[in-house]
């Protein structure tokens, strides 16, 4: 996918989930090779949006294209082109790290030998070689997260979804994950990440979409969003509003900062 192409395009997506309106006219466009931060409080619809974009949930209405393919018409093609890191680690706890990577490699239809080679590469890259043959049940939180990321990168997908990738992680591991995301972007991967941490969005995202009550209420670069609030809202003209204040201004309430 060339730079300037659209990697993610959602138009007027609607979804009722468990009797509640989860997405209510959700629109989002993410250019290829950029990082988009989807920022919003618990219950705003972040996870529902990610689940629809990654083919896990069917929308009630709207159009969704990811990596140039229609999510509804051709989910299989989308699945070959995306990686998903969910809120909780989603690897097989009984198997070893290496067995996980080979298993999921084969399920991505790599030949067995290629799946093994790819597993070795990823174990090395994510500093898991030493623990490669131990059961994941004995891994630390950070190791699980790295394995989770590695598993999502088996096919070097052009589009990667990270749903609250650092929620509940210790600061050191959080910085590790951030470094990994930055290096992926350097390789040209498009990243959509959801977060409740404003600092995280500010650190990683080229553009931020603020989601509230199932729709995007504001979208732009972190600086643009800060500018939208306007300096008249603060005591001195020289002080720029914080993202917290941007959020309050746009949604009418403070963001939740405790881990979900």
């Amino acid at each position: 996918m060339a730079y300037g192409d659209t990697a993610i395009e959602a138009v007027d997506v609607r979804k009722r989930y468990r009797g509640k309106v989860a997405l209510d006219g959700f629109d989002l466009t993410v250019e290829a090779g950029t990082v988009c931060g989807l920022l919003g409080p618990n219950g705003a619809g972040k996870t529902t949006a990610v689940r629809i974009l990654t083919t896990l949930l069917r929308p009630d209405g709207g159009r969704v294209r990811v990596a140039g393919r229609d999510v509804l018409a051709d989910p299989r093609a989308v699945r070959y082109r995306i990686g998903l890191v969910g809120q909780d680690t989603s690897v097989d706890e009984v198997l070893s790290g290496r067995q996980n990577l080979v298993l999921f490699g084969k399920l991505c239809h790599l030949p067995t030998a290629a799946a093994r080679r790819r597993a070795d590469e990823l174990l090395e890259r994510f500093e898991l070689t030493g623990a490669a043959d131990r059961s994941v049940a004995g891994y630390s939180g950070g190791m699980r997260r790295r394995l989770d990321l590695a598993t999502s990168l088996i096919l070097s997908p052009p589009v990667l979804f990270l749903d609250e990738p650092t929620t509940g992680l210790d600061p050191r591991t959080r910085i590790d994950v951030w470094a990994c995301v930055k290096s992926l972007v350097g390789d040209g991967t498009t990243v959509l990440l959801t977060t409740q941490y404003l600092e995280e969005a500010d650190q990683l995202a080229d553009r931020i979409a603020v989601i509230d009550a199932g729709r995007v209420v504001a979208e732009g670069t972190p600086d643009e969003l800060k500018a939208k609030v306007g300096p008249d809202r603060v005591e001195t003209v020289t002080r720029k509003p914080t993202l917290d204040e941007v959020f309050l201004h746009l949604t009418g309430h403070r963001p939740t900062t405790e881990p979900s």
Binding site: R79, Y80, I82, D88, S90, V91, D92, H109
Partner: peptide, 13 residues
């Protein structure tokens, strides 16, 4: 519960 079902569903299986 462990999210493995969803991981598999997000793969071309």
């Amino acid at each position: 519960a462990k999210g493995v079902t969803d991981r598999v569903r997000a793969m071309p299986v």
